[in-house]
Design a protein around this nucleic acid. Structure first.
Lengths: 238, 238
DNA sequence: GACGTATTTATTGCATACAATATTGACGAT
DNA sequence: ATCGTCAATATTGTATGCAATAAATACGTC
């Protein structure tokens, strides 16, 4: 009566669209698709061996999370967030991640702290070896913090915001912009560990500010034109 | 060349699933369905004259917004948030709505203030005449504030949180709990109008606190049992 | 040769049909 | 009579087919 814990071809207890969703999400966040790229249902479905129905569901979900845009009768394309979107996203992050820290004060157990430190160690490790994994891990640190709050909706929002932040960074951030985050993460853990609410909140606040300014200093000139056009075009439905 | 602004049978430029989504959302928020009620695709589709495909899309979206729960192979049912969910939701609201107020300081034009005052007048009007519309309007005041920030993602989150708050209130709030909100709304507008950042933030903070405590004082005894069971059941996947 | 229009092609919107899973009810054994 | 098992029913998961809309191409006119 033990449920088959099969090997590779596990009978999925979860809908296929979840798998497609995850694949597409990873592909978008790793910039396998350029911003603005079209995402036709049938080519994706054909490639992944599922029907358009499934792809459609995955696309609808990605649309809900702001990773793609879905215009009626025109199909889906990878989001091309504007600089203004970037500022908005980071403003909300700042607010919510301060709440994360605030919620965590006085509730962090020793194993939780160990988990956080292990994660930052991994970030440190990847910093030199694997730069692309590095930015991924830096984002996941924030998601991990949010998870530790045990606040489901806070976790969902932070996760979504971190994803979208990474799109912003890839569009407007300067290269190597996430390197220096590791030390800030360590300081934050230290403040949390000593239940220093004021300090931890301030650190998080400055940390997000730092990420924001690293990313959005000015309208990194090359993208600015296309982005400006995109903004006008969107208003006209083009 | 004027696009047909037809009467009732307007050629919908928007997908049908949007209409179904809105209908179901309203029905849920107005408590036409009890919390936990099953939402079978067939019967809904049949009733609304659309196929299951459409209903499915609407349900997926509602699931993404936390208004329903969608368990694989088991179908959808109206969410039955726990008291803990309630506290989590209000905690996030408090954080984000403070950001709303903070973003609005120094950016409110005269027409905006007029719009806010008109809204609160409507709240006042409905307070005695139409109690059910009253709670609806009270929520929409917060959505309106969020919209005025021009921060799209902030608006989305606040909208979602207000919806979910209304579910929480209907489950755990005492009757007439939203009556006293109107005066608080007026004070808030006044503080915003005089660009009093400190005062406005504090007012919003206390306002959300007030809503929270009106709603969640304790596990309003009658629902407590069913809710407790629901919490355990959910852990077991039932 | 350039522009506007018609036709063709591609892609999305929707509904239906079939397969897989869960739920319900009936039946028989203890 | 109660429990467990099996069949019947209902509901969800997925794929496919047709209709509607948008995009691309070809054509004719100026």
């Amino acid at each position: 009566m033990i449920p088959k814990t099969s090997g590779s071809t596990q009978k999925s207890a979860v809908p296929k669209s979840d798998a497609v969703y995850r694949i597409l999400k990873r592909a978008i966040l790793e910039q396998a698709f350029a911003a603005g790229a079209k995402l036709p249902e049938d080519s994706i479905g054909e490639r992944l061996g599922v029907s358009r129905t499934i792809v459609r569901q995955a696309l609808a979900r990605l649309n809900g999370e702001g990773l793609i845009e879905l215009r009626p009768n025109k199909g889906a394309c990878v989001s091309h967030p504007s600089l203004e979107d970037g500022h908005n996203i980071f403003a909300v992050r700042r607010s919510l991640e301060t709440l994360v820290v605030d919620s965590l004060i006085g509730r962090l157990t020793a194993p939780m702290i160990k988990e956080l430190e292990a994660h930052v160690d991994a970030e440190d490790m990847a910093r030199l070896n694997n730069p692309s994994a590095s930015i991924q891990l830096a984002g996941e640190f924030h998601v991990l913090l949010a998870r530790l709050t045990q606040n489901a909706i806070l976790l969902r929002y932070v996760t979504e915001l971190v994803s979208r932040s990474s799109m912003i960074l890839s569009l407007y951030g300067r290269p190597h912009s996430s390197d220096c985050a590791v030390s800030e993460h360590r300081e934050l853990i230290a403040a949390l560990a000593r239940n220093d609410r004021e300090g931890a909140c301030k650190l998080m606040d400055h940390h997000i500010e730092a990420i924001t300014s690293r990313a959005l200093i000015k309208g990194s000139s090359e993208n600015d034109v296309s982005n400006l056009l995109a903004a006008y075009a969107r208003e006209e439905g083009l």
